[in-house]
């Protein structure tokens, strides 16, 4: 019986401990947008493309599969930041693009230094173009957003 009591106490404490103070020791990278992960294979190519097509963007840093800096910091030029941001926030971005406004659109507008209201309208009008199939790639989306914003 003592053992059972001990086990119950431990279980209870464990429940408390893990839920209140669960700790992410990975440094916090890549928690977002789980549904959109696992398809980043073409990102390096896209970065190459963006560098070629849009020379004004400085995407000089090699990038891993996730857009997150190993130290957990937002870093790099517009292209790299957008890619990292969209990869982690695709779900909310898709919602905001469909609605024509929202926090992710304001954020992207800030990154690209364009007017967020105009960007919102343009993204909504082009929703079917950006998300032209159910398995969109984050890199494609990034390019299309840049294209729509004329940057």
């Amino acid at each position: 019986m003592k053992k059972i009591l001990g086990a119950v106490v431990l279980t209870a404490v464990m429940n408390l401990a893990t839920s209140a103070h669960a700790v992410d020791s990975t440094g916090g990278c890549g928690l977002g947008s789980m549904a959109w992960r696992g398809q980043s294979g073409i990102i390096p190519q896209v970065l190459a493309m963006t560098t070629n097509e849009m020379a004004s963007h400085t995407i000089g840093v090699t990038i891993g599969t996730s857009g997150c800096d190993p130290n957990g910091r937002i870093t790099g030029g517009t292209g790299r930041m957008m890619l990292a941001f969209l990869e982690d926030n695709m779900e909310q971005f898709a919602m905001d693009a469909a609605a024509g406004k929202g926090e992710t659109i304001e954020t992207l507008a800030g990154m690209m230094n364009v007017d967020s209201e105009t960007l919102g309208k343009d993204l909504q009008n082009n929703f079917a173009y950006i998300f032209d199939n159910d398995n969109v790639e984050v890199a494609d989306v990034t390019l299309k957003v840049m294209e729509i914003a004329h940057v």
């Binding site: 992410d24 020791s25 440094g27 916090g28 928690l31 977002g32 789980m34 982690d88 909310q92």
Partner: peptide, 15 residues
Amino acid sequence: SVSPYWDVINAYNNI
């Protein structure tokens, strides 16, 4: 540990 605030939002608000 440091992470972008969007990760914090996703971790707590959304997941």
